[in-house]
Design a protein around this nucleic acid. Sequence first.
DNA 1: CTTCTCCCTGTTTTT
DNA 2: CAGGGAGAAG
Length: 691
Amino acid sequence: MGKLVKRAGRDRIEAVPDRIIVLKNAGAPAQAADEASFRIKYAEVLNAAQLAAVTHRNGPLLVVAGAGSGKTRTLIYRVARLIESGVPPGAILLLTFTRRAAQEMLQRVEQLVGERAGEVAGGTFHSFANTVLRRYGAALGLKPNFTILDRSDMEDVINLLRTRMGLGSRDRRFPKKGTIAEAISMARNKCRALEEEIEIDFPHLHDHTEEIVKLAVSYEAYKRERALLDYDDLLYRMVELLKEHEQVRKRLSETYRYIMIDEYQDTNRIQADLVRLLAATHHNVMAVGDDAQSIYSFRGANFRNIMDFPTLFPGARVVKLEENYRSVQGILDVANEVISRAVEKYTKVLFTQRRSEVRPLLVRAEDEHMQSRFVAQRILELREEGVELGEIAVLFRSSFHSFDLELELQRCDIPFVKRGGFKFIETAHIKDVLAHLRIVANPADAVSWLRMLTLVNGVGNRRADRLIEELVNSAQPEKTLAESASKLGVRAQAAVEGCARLAALVAGLKSGKAGSTRPADQLASVVEYYLPIMREAYPDDYPKRERDLEHFQNLTERYRSLESMLADMALEPPSDSIGDVLAIDPEEGYVTLSTIHSAKGLEWRVVFLIWAADGRFPGPMSVEPEELEEERRLMYVASTRARDELYLSYPMYMFDRSLGHVMGRASRFLEDLDPQILPTAMLQESQDEPA
DNA sequence: CTTCTCCCTGTTTTT
DNA sequence: CAGGGAGAAG
């Protein structure tokens, strides 16, 4: 789907500097034309509130939009309206939650106003920051070839530093790398001192505060020395850039004269800062969001942020969209009930004119497998009734909740794609292969060197560490590698040979052996080198992994530059669970399986929510009242994804590792709902149905 | 110092 | 049901 679109997206973003020239002309936009001169009849296709938002021209605007109230539609029409009013598309910046969302919106804008919409800049905060930093980061002393660290890279570095600093080698209770990484990242996302963050959210780490802070300090230094940026750095350093370099700030602010942000309730303070700085010269910011759908507090978002918008941008206009165009009233009744029991009240009550006799259904299954069979069977029936598979989704709280269902769907030959949860980009073999390419782009990328070197037989953490010290400062790392390795001595013959082979590979990659520096070709030589290593490392399942690598090679075909490919892999990784994807018949379509988080902003005609059971949703990790409130909002998000039919199901017997078999109860968010609003059904085995 | 093996843990959610 | 971590052997 949409190779071209994706490519267009990248070009759009990369084209930043050219646009500055365009800009000067844009300084004097066409004066507000009167309604008759617009091709689109805005007043006819939008309701009053939507129209008010769309025709808003200058100054800050906050749109509080309930689920399904035409939020995306409003954004799209606003973009169209601006373009029709003479604003150059390149002066519009559309920040969304995923790049996918940005692309979909721009496609729809294109249908309205034509190709020029393609020039609108857009993407996630992180991908936008990435582009800007590559271009202007030199002002901060940042190399343009910096490497982006994902979460597991971050953990690798922390682990390395921890051992190096001799922390926690004795103390078995020293926190794990993942926990430390989380604390560091959380502190930054909430704009708190690390000490403070530990006190508030990680009180159990209190005894180790001093060491963790030290670790965080050396982590910062390590990244700076080696041109490495983690996700948080992308945002932080961009804020730094805008704060400290007035010229850059002015340039960008003048380039992007109209800024729009989707899903504002899920932004955190740094992102808000970023917007404020970007809009410094014009304050033309339109934020769209729904406080009742804030589900990313684990990433530092706070649903109260949206209410702070008018403080951040004085004089902001506020528009509320409350009419729902998506769901039938029965579904909204459930959603409204769920959210009305929240401790803190939200700003809207949804209503619709879509009447329907059908109510959502709370389905009790005997056990997990029966739940899966129910979903599969109902999907088959729906298909008989003429519902396209693409109109059906199964949602769940955590990605592993769908394991049993996946097997059942496979058994019934129902094609599906799973979104959220495991990303195959994060599997060891893909990361291994990527590491070899990352050092071509950034030879100082010590994380990747470490990964590559420890793959070599006879090289472990210690030797790798010593080799890296020499490598990262060397002008020709591959030569240095071969030389230093040869000094390891006869006792490490395997290591010497292995390093020589690795050095040869790297040399080949850099020189563009096989006459090409196309990422796909470079990847091919890496794979050739890596296959024997992989066979040895994973004797049980290497065939599966080989198929992954093949799939990965296909994915890289369309990239022309290594840098853009690597940035994409870090910021917008392909998340399809492979295998199934390839087998799908485009005519038939597929059912979507998704975590609720990944379903944000999407809608389907029929939605199943499985594992709506206490202990799963909310999960065992949610104890604090605030966490439970977020789970409640998550339930609200899940139920408002459905247009016509909504099935909430849970098994009556479930297996718990610590408790054994337990009686399952419906999620606490559903259990005391009026049966008039949420009727209950019980599954029964029919006689002629084989078990 | 590296590697092998066994045990244990622990399992949201994402850029 | 993995993947990581700790401990022992080469």
